[in-house]
Design a protein around this nucleic acid. Structure first.
Lengths: 132, 132
DNA sequence: CTTGACCCCGGACCGAGGTACGGGCCGTAG
DNA sequence: CTACGGCCCGTACCTCGGTCCGGGGTCAAG
């Protein structure tokens, strides 16, 4: 229940002070009340929010997606539907990336294998159909 | 053996004209001879080089790495050692990314599974140790 | 009361890999 | 000859997620 300054909040969440203000500009954090002299006053809910953002970022969500995930309706409830939709889109993207990486890995391995034989291919990075 | 204008070269390689000039500025393409009026005149070697860049990019090499891959020694030979080193570094990076994605995928799947049960976790994106 | 750490703000900057713009010359088909 | 498309150049702009800067006000310890 502590009232936190921006610096303490940032420390507690393990992010940069500038990042906190950036998130506020981006609409990820709710503008907190201010002291008479203009200092931001944060509470535990803000710390939770920052932690949420960190977790979501670690899962690869963009800030825009996280922003959407954090939106609440008039009653203050988050939409499970939106979370489901966003998360499954993210999962699909992750799986796509893994497929791509798998192909790249195979090509790199064969390049290395050929190259270690001293083959000339080593210096040419042979074509192999690439549809990008 | 055709003498290509920048536009034809770009079309043939499937890239933007601006990209060709950008690569020249970046040192990836050798500044070609010019006509009396200053038009760049490209040959097949340039087309090959652009294709090489495309292939390398598809494998995830950065332009800086590609630049290094394209360097030739005094005799015009590319260094197999450098190719090997760069490619194996890239392979390691790809494998690391795959590991990371694998963990993310698992977490997304469990999030989705919980969420579909209508669990409250759906709206909270549970912590799960994240070391980022 | 002073000093140093903290906070305020708007705006500039980073890196990667381009893309777009604007003013002006060139080249060729009709 | 003229119009239109292609080329020249330098510079600005884009995305993404921050990070830094400079000038100025504030708070707590000594």
């Amino acid at each position: 229940m502590g009232a936190l300054t921006i610096g303490r909040l940032a420390d507690a969440a393990g992010v940069n002070v500038e990042t906190v203000r950036y998130y506020e500009r981006r609409g990820l954090l709710v503008p907190p009340p201010r002291t008479a002299s203009g200092y931001r006053q944060y509470g535990d809910a803000d710390l939770w929010r920052l932690a949420f953002i960190r977790r979501a970022k670690a899962l690869g969500f963009t800030l825009a997606e996280i922003s959407s995930l954090l939106e609440t309706d008039a009653t203050g409830a988050r939409s499970a539907e939106r979370v489901l939709a966003t998360a499954s889109a993210r999962l699909a993207a992750v799986e796509q990336q893994m497929d791509d990486l798998d192909r790249v890995r195979a090509r790199l391995r064969s390049l290395l294998a050929t190259c270690e034989q001293g083959g000339d291919d080593c210096t040419s990075l042979r074509p192999e159909p690439v549809s990008t």
